[in-house]
Design a protein around this nucleic acid. Structure first.
Lengths: 333, 333
DNA sequence: CTGTTAGCGCATTCAT
DNA sequence: ATGAATGCGCTAACAG
């Protein structure tokens, strides 16, 4: 590995001149510049990024925290972040939080110890206070798909209430009146907002909100199944079901099929997120789109602005929209 | 940010003593060690990993190349690599190759410029020659799910031929005799090996290999659909279909349903890889399991051995196995 | 067992 | 516009 020193020697100039042409910040005599370029080529010189980082205390690396690596939702997120950042010659160090406070803290510590220039996180378990504190520690932070009081510009978020509203509204328009709901964990704001939207749609239609038609799930596929069984056991009839995410919808879907129901005639089901397998399930899932890739891209651009002086436009709030497929059908009756 | 120097000062020892207790390599007087530990705590000192890297020319980071970030198959791969490496306090820099030679080369260049200690790659487009050359450049390389002549110990791979054999064998045992096959790109060795296994199963059963019953796909969902339509257009009856991966199987599945066929009665379908959505599709997909997570883990352990002096056992060859679900059924007739 | 010294490769003052 | 000198924070001989 040639060093900048050897390049200087071969080009017959000083260290600093080479550095200058490499970074293009200061102006350099054209002749010298050419000699340097030539030497660089001949030696196949590549700057040592570690040394560079030590000298200017920038690593050009951004830490990314996601709950898991093998879920389509977070795959979309990472894809968007990586490509946006890579276009700016930054790179991504990915770390996994596993939905657990301790692991998430560890992961953040890990990323910090790696001297990341900034953090982009989809933090599930970390508290708002922790995030605020982190942000004040002069390490820029971007929060994807989350809203933290006091950090408006660092967050991108979705109007989850509207999403919940759209899902239920769709079913109402199809003539359903008895609509069950499988919620996400109520301590998560997105879950409670989605539920809130559901209730608003019901109210607007002049329908009561029956707590017996609501099941509290944990966003897992398994809980889609458990939830459906539990709801049916309560013996209050319903012709449609909203699930707070696609995983639970998928669980409910296959459970319903296993129960011998014919879908969507016997039960209309709506999901949330529009993850990639939403059109793999049968019947293809009607769901609410979640523009996670765009939110992730905006987070990356926000960091690019904040840390590297770029000037991208960044959007912080996003609207969900309904994606109608085949798992919902008009209620005859 | 406190430096090692300030820790030394506060503990009343020298720089090197601090370094020694931090790295635990050499032995240090117990009393001094305690003073150092105390100072570290009090100052909340965290070693600067960049400086450390510059001094010992190790970044403790491993470059990972995958074709895409938002596919379940590669999600499993990354998950396994990340957790294995993280347990050893190494970290992962992920880069995307997009199935394209140029992009893959760029990605590799990028990772090299980042001073990765090693590379773990699922390289799709890069040639064997390129990989051999890379490996000789003293940068250790591990190839996941690929076999390169001349680099036996760097590779983990699956017995794809056997996988193809198992898929077709299963259908034969169910009484099917007319079995169509949608292959992956024939320039990829896994695809051609899977097809080869299919043919062997046919031959062993004394059945002819009809080229008219084979369609060349590109592993995409779309080609599952296109392939099925094309095969049906050829007007040679078949009662079962093997697809060289789950994506194509999924495409074929939903295409068949759209055509009004009732599954699995009208057509038995087998996939390959057992990706996460294999049990989301309807009917749940019978497929061949691909232990990608284990292969990835082994690649990580291989690197841990090779670069960081660990001594894990590493397995290089893996056997696929059949996962029977509901998309295949006995052929009556 | 401990402290002193010298780089690792580069960016950046500061002079010129 | 250019070169010489200094330091980023740490590890690793080396000497004691």
């Amino acid at each position: 590995m040639p060093t900048i020193y050897q390049v200087a020697e071969r080009a017959g100039v000083s260290l600093s001149t080479v550095s200058r042409v490499l970074n293009g910040k200061a102006s350099v005599n054209k002749v010298l510049k050419e000699r340097v370029d030539k030497a660089v080529k001949e030696l196949n010189y590549r700057p040592n990024s570690v040394a560079r980082s030590l000298a200017n205390s920038r690593t050009d690396s951004i830490g990314v925290l996601v709950p898991e690596l093998n879920a389509p939702f977070f795959g979309d997120l990472m894809q968007a972040v990586e490509s946006t950042l890579r276009a700016a010659d930054k790179h991504v160090i990915i770390s996994v939080g596993q939905n657990c406070v301790e692991t998430e803290k560890d992961a953040v510590e890990f990323l910090i110890s790696r001297n990341c220039d900034a953090l982009i996180m989809h933090a599930e378990a970390l508290s708002d206070e922790y995030l605020l504190e982190l942000n004040q520690s002069k390490l820029p932070v971007a929060l994807v798909n989350r809203q933290v009081e006091g950090l408006p510009e660092a967050c991108t978020s979705l109007d989850n209430e509207k999403g919940g509203y759209l899902a239920t509204r769709h079913l109402l328009e199809l003539g359903h009146k008895d609509i069950a709901y499988i919620s996400g964990p109520k301590d998560k704001s997105d879950a409670s907002l989605r539920l809130q939207g559901h209730k608003r749609a019901l109210s607007e239609a002049g329908l009561p909100v029956d707590p017996q038609l609501i099941f509290n799930g944990d966003y897992s596929e398994e809980d889609g199944k458990v939830g459906l069984l539990e709801l049916m056991a309560r013996d209050i009839p319903f012709t449609a079901l909203v699930c707070a995410n696609d995983w639970m919808a998928s669980g409910a879907l296959s459970c319903a099929r296993d129960l011998g129901m014919s879908l969507p005639q016997d039960l209309s089901i709506v999901g949330f997120d529009d993850v990639v397998f939403a059109h793999h399930v049968f019947p293809r899932l009607t769901t609410v789109s979640n523009p996670i890739a765009e939110m992730a891209e905006m987070s990356a651009k926000y960091i690019l602005n904040k840390v590297y002086g770029q000037a991208n436009e960044v959007q912080h709030y996003f609207e969900p929209s309904l994606v109608v497929r085949e798992s919902t059908v008009k209620h005859e009756g």
